[in-house]
Measured scan of single mutants.
Amino acid sequence: MASQGTKRSYEQMETDGERQNATEIRASVGKMIGGIGRFYIQMCTELKLSDYEGRLIQNSLTIERMVLSAFDERRNKYLEEHPSAGKDPKKTGGPIYRRVNGKWMRELILYDKEEIRRIWRQANNGDDATAGLTHMMIWHSNLNDATYQRTRALVRTGMDPRMCSLMQGSTLPRRSGAAGAAVKGVGTMVMELVRMIKRGINDRNFWRGENGRKTRIAYERMCNILKGKFQTAAQKAMMDQVRESRNPGNAEFEDLTFLARSALILRGSVAHKSCLPACVYGPAVASGYDFEREGYSLVGIDPFRLLQNSQVYSLIRPNENPAHKSQLVWMACHSAAFEDLRVLSFIKGTKVLPRGKLSTRGVQIASNENMETMESSTLELRSRYWAIRTRSGGNTNQQRASAGQISIQPTFSVQRNLPFDRTTIMAAFNGNTEGRTSDMRTEIIRMMESARPEDVSFQGRGVFELSDEKAASPIVPSFDMSNEGSYFFGDNAEEYDN
């Protein structure tokens, strides 16, 4: 783990906690998980779902989305002020799938948001429990990260689609708070800032007046979040320049895209947490497990152990491969979309394939898809080993990566060399080191050039047997250095459309 220093740990961010010791953190995270579980059980009762239907990941996603929508204050306010045809701002819903006479049927349900809020609060001892809501947002974000390569979004903001390893959390809503900021990748933060800068260039009043003052505060806050992700002084200094700019424009845009590229080699610290679907927490609570009393951590053995003992089902389209669908969801559960496939294969105990080789589309089923041909199958979400999630980018030494994705962002704290394609990355730096950030740029390029592919990161860190909950005997895996390590390699994943 990167030293926490003055930073709060993510469990504290996750639970809005002030400084807590490890036991208190485990208890408050457990409380959050228990609340999600209780809410899910109650919703299944309301909807009269069978046990099997309640364990269907598509039903879980609909129920999670309903509660997130019920608590989305800004959108609710907007919907009330701008009524649109056929949208009731006070209601929320989605597809629920039921097994009827041996076939899967889709039923569109509609609930009062007020009623959903009441059920959620009741499951969370009367609190709004925003930490639990954020947790579900991060699960949705991790699922998107594993399912889609955001080529269009990258290109629109002047970045290269091969930089997708920097895009963790790119679909997280803005209201996801400190826990959300911690899991956002460098590219995601750059993209958010670039969008602001572009608006400022096109709209003279963007930075002016009372609204402009708020915009400015948001801009500086985002700059500080991004600065905190960088691990070298030169990158941090460049972020200070971007933040202090009187009138952010093209120079800042250039600096930010430069920094994003540099992060492929001088990786930023991005938190990883295993956020599971509500249909995993519900049955665990129903079986009598007391998360608050037992304590829970999002970055240790607990999620692995929970998945070892969970039964989750998914709808499967006619030509999809259930094992591939399982891999997709497994990666999402562990926030591992940008991790090295060699490491993932070792931990999972079966070969993890790149996205383009998977015969599976996303987990969600569109409303126009034919239910007649839908089957369902068990998702295999178990693992051979477990490993500690990392909050750091690993040290800054790398190795060759593949054509589709030119770097990785480690999820697990496991000893290995970190793949990246130096030639491709360095070719993108057209040696432009003039301007006010020239000395920093020169320094950053120097550090990137001296990074050695064969150097090892996370020295001495290994994986653990599932029986080793105290992480007492690390097993340090050895990897084939020459092997392909990137998930979005030469990829044809669908595009994420909101």
Rank of each mutant, 00 (worst) to 15 (best):
Q4V: 04
S9N: 09
Y10S: 09
T15Q: 01
E18N: 06
G30Y: 05
K31I: 13
I41H: 00
M43F: 14
L47T: 13
L49D: 01
D51L: 14
D51R: 00
R55Y: 03
L61W: 04
L61P: 00
E64C: 03
M66T: 09
Y78L: 02
E81W: 06
G86V: 12
G86A: 09
R98C: 02
K103F: 04
K113F: 05
K113R: 15
R117L: 14
R117V: 11
R117H: 13
I119N: 11
N125A: 13
T134K: 00
I138H: 05
I138T: 09
W139L: 13
D145R: 00
A146M: 08
T147C: 09
Y148T: 01
Q149F: 04
Q149Y: 07
T151V: 08
L154V: 08
V155K: 04
M159T: 06
L166S: 15
M167N: 10
G169R: 05
L172K: 08
E192S: 03
R199P: 04
R213G: 08
K214Y: 06
I217G: 15
I225T: 14
I225L: 09
T232D: 01
A234I: 03
A234M: 05
L256F: 10
H272G: 03
S274K: 02
S274N: 03
G288Y: 13
E292K: 15
Y296A: 05
Y313C: 14
R317Q: 10
P318E: 05
N319V: 02
E320P: 00
K325M: 11
V329F: 01
S335A: 15
A336F: 06
E339Y: 03
V352M: 14
G356E: 10
K357L: 07
R384S: 06
Y385A: 13
G404C: 15
Q405C: 00
Q409C: 11
V414I: 15
F420Y: 12
M426G: 02
M426H: 01
I444C: 13
E449Y: 09
A451R: 12
G460E: 10
R461H: 04
L466S: 01
D468Y: 12
I475E: 02
P477K: 01
P477M: 05
D480I: 10
M481R: 11
F488P: 05
G490Y: 02
